[in-house]
Simulated scan of single mutants.
Amino acid sequence: MSDVRVAITRLPHGADLPLPAYATADAAGLDLLAAIDAPVILQPLGRALVPSGISIALPAGYEAQVRPRSGLALKQGVTVLNAPGTIDADYRGEVGVILINLSDQPVTLQRGDRIAQLLLAKVERLAWDEVAELPATMRGSGGFGSTGIAAKR
């Protein structure tokens, strides 16, 4: 693995929190923390935009993905609503995490709680090649679930 240098700024409301960090040597994502001044209560099916207290400047050709933390999802039913959330290389605002409580109990978030993971991903640009007809495949234009149906035949 190689390191990609990313500029980061701590915002005033996150100045006392640690920077996002990898929990283990082989972790794929860095933990994002809740930069909230007071506890946030997520009611069942409630959602909130939780600030992280940081802004980043990704290099061109990369995106950052905001993904759920598996422990938070399993133990408390809280996940990232738009998973994975995408942070584009030209975005300079605060990294925010849209959380939703899918459990049947309220969940309280505290300042500094680990709320999501941030992963770096290389991005390839798509260039359209408009054609009159697409090449044929065994699946064809079969929609959702069509490969499972075909496998049973």
Rank of each mutant, 00 (worst) to 15 (best):
L74D: 04
S141C: 05
G77Y: 00
L17Y: 13
S141D: 15
L45T: 14
G29A: 14
V95Y: 01
T86K: 13
A132C: 01
H13K: 09
I8K: 05
D113R: 06
L72Y: 05
A48W: 03
P68E: 07
V4S: 07
E94R: 00
R153P: 01
V50F: 00
A73F: 01
Q117K: 10
L120G: 03
A136V: 10
E124R: 15
G96V: 13
Q43K: 11
L109D: 07
D88Q: 04
Q110G: 01
I115T: 09
G148Y: 13
S146N: 04
L42Y: 00
D16Q: 09
V66Q: 10
A21H: 15
D31R: 03
D129C: 11
G142L: 02
A25H: 12
A150K: 03
Y62L: 02
G14C: 08
G112A: 08
G14L: 04
D104E: 14
V40T: 04
D90V: 12
P44D: 04
L33P: 06
Q43N: 06
I98A: 09
G71K: 02
L49E: 15
R69L: 05
R67D: 03
E130W: 09
R153S: 03
A7R: 14
G142N: 03
G142F: 08
P106W: 07
G14Y: 03
A25W: 11
R153N: 09
Q65L: 10
L45N: 15
S141Q: 11
G145P: 00
P20K: 09
L30S: 03
V80D: 03
D3I: 15
L102W: 08
N82C: 00
A27T: 05
R10H: 10
A60Y: 06
S55F: 02
R139E: 07
R125V: 13
L72P: 01
L32P: 04
L17W: 12
L74E: 05
P39K: 09
E124V: 14
L74M: 11
G53S: 10
L49I: 10
D16N: 11
R111V: 05
A25M: 10
D16G: 12
V131D: 12
G93W: 02
E124Q: 14
D26G: 11
L45R: 15
P51E: 10
D31K: 03
A151K: 07
I41G: 00
A7H: 13
G71T: 00
A83I: 00
P18R: 14
L42R: 01
H13N: 11
D90L: 08
S55A: 15
A127K: 11
D37T: 08
D3C: 13
A89R: 02
L109W: 05
P59F: 04
L33F: 13
V80W: 00
T24M: 09
R111H: 06
P135K: 04
Q43C: 01
S2I: 14
S141P: 00
V6S: 09
L99F: 02
I115V: 06
V78L: 01
E94W: 01
E133C: 05
Y91I: 05
V4K: 02
A60R: 06
V80N: 09
A48Y: 02
N101Q: 08
L72V: 03
R114D: 13
D90H: 06
D90Y: 12
E130Y: 09
R125F: 07
A121I: 14
P59W: 08
P39G: 04
L119N: 07
A48H: 06
V131T: 13
G77T: 04
T137P: 01
E94N: 01
Y22W: 10
S52V: 08
